[in-house]
Amino acid sequence: MTITHAPAPTNTARITAIDLAVSTVRDLNQALHATDDGTSWVVDTPAGQHNIAVGIDRDLDLVVNGHVGYYFAGMHQKGRVTVHGSAGVGLAENIMSGTVHVTGDASQAAAATGQGGLVVVDGNTGARCGISMKGVDIVVGGDIGHASAFMAQAGRLVVCGDAGEGLGDSIYEARIYVKGTVASLGADCIEKPLRPEHLAELAELLALAGRTDDPAEFRRYGSARTLYHFAAVNAAAY
């Protein structure tokens, strides 16, 4: 692996630069797993490779210049990660904590099953954004695809654009905020009142994502809780 140390933007830290045209993803990940808290990293030439920066459990800062493939920042636990580009399937899947920010678009299953932390996508996402989310907060600047927040259990999904078909199908206790249109709601997902506490948490999430959208322009969606117990009359929804 070729690691070069470049001067940091401040005088108090150093940045480790890794070029994935030279180093392997395996080398990068093992270095990230072994590093100390407080380190800073820049990765160039990701070239859409899969599994970059997975399993980070150090409080570090990482910037990737270019597009990344599947499972970027999968199971992310600590630190702040930014991609100046777009991300493939399963961005930050099962994220536990920390922040993952993609300046471009993300493919399907973004932040799938995320248990905590914050995932920000400035552009659009594909289908199944926030599928089975379990506590993660997701802010999408653009649109999200169909079957997003399917079986979403906990956490907040904020969509500044439009949502595709079947939003929040079989949702449990997650909360969804959409500024634009919703093509259709999935089974047991309904629009709910936007009360002051929701406006407050929405404002906080938008601010964390660096956005200036007006919370009052969003609508809130969540579970009608009619499918929480099996009942023969609900067979069509099962």
Binding site: Y71, E93, A109, M151, S170
Partner: peptide, 27 residues
């Protein structure tokens, strides 16, 4: 209700990438 399909992959090509991810996470 537990899902019958994995949420972030479908098919053997994706499975190969998923296995690689788990290997990367566990070094």
């Amino acid at each position: 209700r537990s899902a019958c399909r994995h949420p972030d992959w479908t098919g053997p090509d994706d499975l190969a990438i998923k296995i690689a991810e788990l290997r990367e996470i566990t070094d």
